[in-house]
Simulated scan of single mutants.
Amino acid sequence: MSAAPEAKYTEETVLWVERHTPKLMTFAITRPESYRFSAGQFSRLGFRDGSGFIWRAYSVVSAEYADTLEYFAVLIENGPMSAKLAALQSGDTVLLDKTATGFLLPERFADGRDLVMLCTGSGIAPFLSILEQPEIWQRFDSLTLAHSVSYAGELIFNGRIAALQAHPLVGEYFHKLTFLPVLTREQAAGALNKRLPELLKNGGLAAAAGKTFTPQDTRFMICGNPAMVRDTFQALLDMGFAMHRNRIPGQIMMENGF
């Protein structure tokens, strides 16, 4: 006999909400002692909606060892879940599916020296979690994170990434990280100015990272809007890289952002 729906989730309390722009917000909820996830995975969050429920998947921003669960949301106009999140306040209740899921996990790569994380919008969330894990810094010789957004005001995590230099667990490895902000609809000092697939094709991303991307050494993780994921994947295929599968090792892992 299958479990009742109520047995599949817990009710968690919103601890804080921060609205960075009219469309971008981060928030944290309480974490049950029994809740486990791997950096790179996502949670299913929900609300009661009339006589039913509404559920959406959000990658966990928090480190695996954090006491709370943090998420990053991009609000969609007229989106039913976005409407719930837009009204979210500290003290409110959010439903949390008891099981985290997702396969955007760097430990799935059996080899490689250089890890390149490519993302748009909320697709940065799993990488923020991954970057707080000491193992990732110890395993790879270099880490590159490229975050592509439309406008400079949407680069809301630049300070958080810079603060990793003082992180008690990963700060000593900070010199391994190259962070590349990317803007597609305006220009700003210190940012690249083309879509990620184009930056791969024209060599601009590799040049900015100071690396030569090779199937032997480079491993790619991609997360973001479906068009970027599709086009970036194709660009990498054209460059000689292959999808990573459990039985057939490759150099690319990808997941659409939620």
Rank of each mutant, 00 (worst) to 15 (best):
E12S: 07
V116A: 00
T93R: 02
G123E: 02
A163T: 06
G50M: 12
L155G: 06
K211D: 09
I156N: 08
Q89A: 15
A189Q: 14
Q165G: 11
S59T: 04
I156A: 12
F103N: 14
L200M: 08
L88H: 09
F47C: 07
L88Y: 07
Q41V: 09
Y151W: 03
G203W: 02
A83G: 08
F72T: 06
H20G: 06
Y35W: 01
A86D: 13
Q138K: 08
E64M: 10
I252R: 00
G123P: 09
L199Y: 04
R247H: 13
K176W: 04
A163K: 11
A86R: 01
D231R: 10
V182G: 04
F127T: 03
E255T: 08
F27K: 02
M25A: 14
L143A: 01
A206G: 07
T184C: 11
V17A: 07
K194T: 03
G40N: 04
G250D: 02
I76G: 06
M243I: 11
Q187Y: 14
N256D: 15
V182K: 04
K23Y: 09
S51Y: 07
T218Q: 00
A235G: 12
G159F: 08
P215V: 02
I222P: 13
T144F: 04
F127G: 10
L128P: 01
E154C: 00
M25L: 15
G190N: 01
F72C: 10
R44A: 11
G112N: 02
I76H: 14
A209M: 12
Y151T: 07
A73H: 13
E255I: 05
T30C: 12
P5Y: 02
Q187L: 12
R113S: 01
I222Y: 12
D111M: 04
I161M: 11
T101K: 15
S43K: 11
S82Q: 13
A66M: 12
G203R: 01
M254Y: 14
P249H: 08
V14W: 05
Q251S: 09
R185Q: 15
G159R: 08
A162H: 09
A66D: 15
A100I: 05
R19E: 00
L143S: 03
M117A: 11
L24F: 13
N78P: 06
Q216I: 10
L196Y: 01
Y58E: 13
M117W: 13
Y71T: 05
E154W: 00
